[in-house]
């Protein structure tokens, strides 16, 4: 069971994704119905990860839109 926290429009939404094995971040995005265009970056285990990186069943992943400065 991976916890997926999606940040968008000044809100955090939490999803739980049932997993029995490690899957890619791209797979998780499909599961929670987020288009790749909307994703700027993602963080898992204190590290930035990309679409091909693996997410384990116990991980927490945070997904963000492109965030800029200013």
């Amino acid at each position: 069971m991976a916890k997926v926290i999606v940040f968008s429009g000044d809100r955090l939404t939490e999803h739980i994704v049932e997993l029995d094995r490690a899957v890619t971040l791209g797979y998780i995005l499909n599961k929670v119905n987020i288009s790749r265009e909307e994703v700027g970056f993602a963080i898992c285990r204190s590290k930035y990860i990309c679409l091909d990186d693996l997410v384990n069943p116990e991980d927490e992943v945070r997904i963000f839109p492109p965030l800029g400065g200013g």
């Binding site: 265009e37 909307e38 700027g40 970056f41 930035y48 990309c50 679409l51 400065g69």
Partner: peptide, 16 residues
């Protein structure tokens, strides 16, 4: 901080 776009704006090929 306004020298260039930040890393998080150019971290994924698919992003807006």
């Amino acid at each position: 901080h306004m020298v260039a776009a930040h890393d998080t704006m150019v971290a994924s090929k698919d992003q807006y």
